Computed example of a mutant assay.
Amino acid sequence: MSEEQRFWSHVRKSTNPDECWEWQGTLRNGYGEFKRHIYAHRYSYQLANGPIPNGMMIDHICFNRRCVNPQHLRLATNSQNMEHLQGAFKNNKSCGIRGVTWAKHANMWKVQVCHNYHRYRGGYFHNLAEAEQAAITLRNKVMQFNDLDRTPISNNN
């Protein structure tokens, strides 16, 4: 069995190219690991697109770390990859909304977006929904690679 055949033998591949193809083998930090120290999504990207340029990362458009579908993967700088995150950071235990935390001293929701080691303040809000919208607006202002904030949510399912 070739290396490529061995790789695909660990993938639950859908016939629909729009769906995730999930890695079924070893995981490291939630990502598939094909060979020692080789992430499965990076290997899949290289099979489909060739070498990954130095300093570049592979971003999961689908937010699924186990996905190896080449159509769900794209090149990104570290900064772009950090922009394209879903949900709040692990240290935000107050509401689960990225860029929104509870400011106990003010008894209000605080909006603050971090980008490229800078903090952008978005203000304080009594209402969580208003704080979330302010965080989205601020992220859209300072970030260009955060697709999630720019994707319209459809209720026509």
Rank of each mutant, 00 (worst) to 15 (best):
T15Y: 11
N16V: 03
P17M: 05
P17S: 10
D18I: 09
E19I: 10
E22Q: 14
W23K: 00
W23A: 02
W23N: 05
Q24A: 10
G25D: 05
T26V: 14
T26S: 14
L27G: 09
L27I: 12
R28S: 04
N29Y: 12
N29V: 02
G30Q: 08
G32C: 07
K35R: 15
K35A: 14
R36L: 13
R36S: 15
R36A: 15
I38Q: 13
I38S: 09
A40Q: 07
H41D: 02
R42E: 01
Y43I: 07
S44A: 15
S44M: 05
S44H: 11
S44I: 00
Y45K: 01
Q46I: 05
Q46H: 14
Q46D: 11
Q46M: 15
L47S: 12
L47W: 12
L47D: 13
A48I: 00
G50P: 09
P51K: 09
I52N: 03
I52H: 02
P53W: 12
N54V: 13
M56G: 01
M56P: 00
M56Q: 11
M57T: 15
M57N: 15
I58V: 15
D59T: 07
D59H: 11
D59G: 07
I61M: 03
C62I: 08
R65L: 02
R66A: 03
R66Y: 00
R66V: 03
C67I: 04
V68A: 06
V68E: 02
N69M: 09
N69R: 06
P70D: 05
Q71M: 06
Q71V: 11
Q71N: 15
Q71I: 02
R74K: 06
R74Y: 10
L75K: 07
A76Y: 00
T77R: 01
T77L: 02
N78M: 01
S79Y: 10
Q80W: 01
N81D: 03
N81G: 08
N81L: 03
E83L: 00
E83G: 08
H84L: 10
H84N: 15
L85R: 11
G87F: 09
A88S: 00
F89K: 07
N92R: 02
N92M: 03
K93Y: 12
K93W: 10
C95M: 11
C95K: 01
C95W: 03
G96P: 06
G96R: 06
G99V: 01
T101I: 10
T101E: 10
T101V: 11
W102M: 07
K104C: 07
K104V: 14
K104A: 13
H105G: 09
H105V: 05
H105Q: 08
A106V: 07
A106H: 13
A106K: 15
N107C: 05
W109L: 09
K110T: 00
K110S: 06
K110L: 06
Q112A: 12
V113C: 00
H115R: 14
H115Q: 15
N116K: 12
H118V: 11
R119C: 14
R119T: 11
